[in-house]
Computed example of a mutant assay.
Amino acid sequence: MKDVKDVIVLGGLNMDLIVDTPRLAGPGETAEGTRFYTTPGGKGGNQAVAAARLAQSNGSVKMVGRIGDDGFGEEMAQFMRNEGIDTSLLRRTENIASGIAVIFILPDGENHVNPVYGANALCDSQQSDDVISALASAGVLLCQQEVPLPVTKASIDAAAKAGVPVVLDPAPVRDVPNGFYSSVSVLTPNQGEASAMANIDVVDADAARKAAVTIRNTGIETVIVTLGDQGAWVESNGISELLDPFNVDVVATVAAGDAFNGGLGVGIASGMDLLDAARLGMASGALCVGRDGAQEAMGTRAEAEALLASHS
């Protein structure tokens, strides 16, 4: 892997409160779980940690966002500092709780997430200004839709103007204004998000291709539909291709998409071509689903390179 330019991440940070359970409770019902634990999460934080473990360059990943003035906020910030992430643009907000997400994980590894965004919802022009201040040395900007959309829009427009590629994960699904994605270089919906955006039931690679073409025709340069254990469909200039999945034992799918985006972002920031960057993202996602947790589950550069080599 070549030297990596800075990876700027704008997005949410949530403390994940995770319950392993045989099944979800119905209305008015109590269904006993089997295990409870907490781990730093949030789509922005997850992508930052995934990128930092792959980049292996202290301070080259910069986190932009907000935490509250509580213990969860400090714990999340310290976790990122321990990973070598630059948190100088992570703002602490008084008199509000940090974001949290209650996550139920079923025996097959599938997860159900209920977030309360807390301080994330107060992101404003301070965050877009912070992104702008970091663009000079950036090789990519990673965004999602957990913070207010005007902040994200101002940031991605500024990045595009500065010639910095933008990777956006359209999650959680929100109604966005016309032209919202006009400055996005790579959009990375999963099956559910692609289905909603293209009005196509994305159940297999052929449907993913049709959805990717439909979404790309709205003016987005590249669309990558992640398909879990079916791989990922890449639709771009001169590229219309299914990337085969890595066969791994799934423990939990929490943060798999974030792991993919973190790896994809590092690939782009290090000058890889699109398909190689996407394969790095897939390796990162495969390593993540083999472990418990969110940020704690992210793979290292050595692990990703070994996985890629074993499937070359």
Rank of each mutant, 00 (worst) to 15 (best):
I105K: 01
L106W: 00
S128D: 08
A159E: 09
N111R: 06
Y117I: 11
V166G: 12
S133W: 00
L142M: 02
C143H: 08
P115F: 05
G99S: 04
R174P: 01
F180S: 07
P170C: 13
A101T: 08
D130K: 01
A154K: 12
L142A: 00
N114D: 02
A158Q: 12
P172S: 04
D157I: 02
S133H: 07
V131C: 02
V116D: 02
L149C: 05
K161P: 00
V147Q: 07
S128E: 09
V184D: 09
I156Q: 15
I103W: 06
S137C: 00
A119G: 13
H112R: 15
P177R: 12
E110Y: 10
Q145D: 01
V116Q: 05
P177Y: 14
G109H: 06
Q144E: 01
S182M: 04
F104Y: 14
G139E: 08
A97F: 07
L168Q: 06
S133L: 02
V167K: 05
L122D: 09
V173T: 13
T152W: 08
V184P: 00
L135E: 03
D169V: 07
G139F: 09
G118E: 15
H112Q: 14
V113R: 07
D169P: 00
P150S: 10
A121D: 04
E110C: 13
A159R: 05
A119C: 10
V151H: 06
N95D: 12
V166K: 10
L141V: 10
V164Y: 04
V167H: 03
I100S: 11
G139H: 09
P177A: 14
A138E: 11
Y181M: 10
L142W: 04
A158I: 13
D130P: 02
S128Y: 09
T152N: 12
E110V: 12
A119T: 10
A134W: 01
V147S: 08
A101R: 08
L149K: 03
A101D: 04
P150A: 11
A101F: 03
S182W: 02
P150N: 10
P150L: 08
V167C: 11
A162T: 06
A101G: 11
P177C: 12
G118T: 13
V184I: 07
C123N: 05
Q144N: 00
I156C: 13
D124A: 13
N111C: 04
L149F: 14
V164Q: 05
Q145G: 00
L106Q: 09
E110K: 15
S183C: 12
G179Q: 09
I103L: 11
D175N: 14
D175R: 13
C143A: 15
G118M: 14
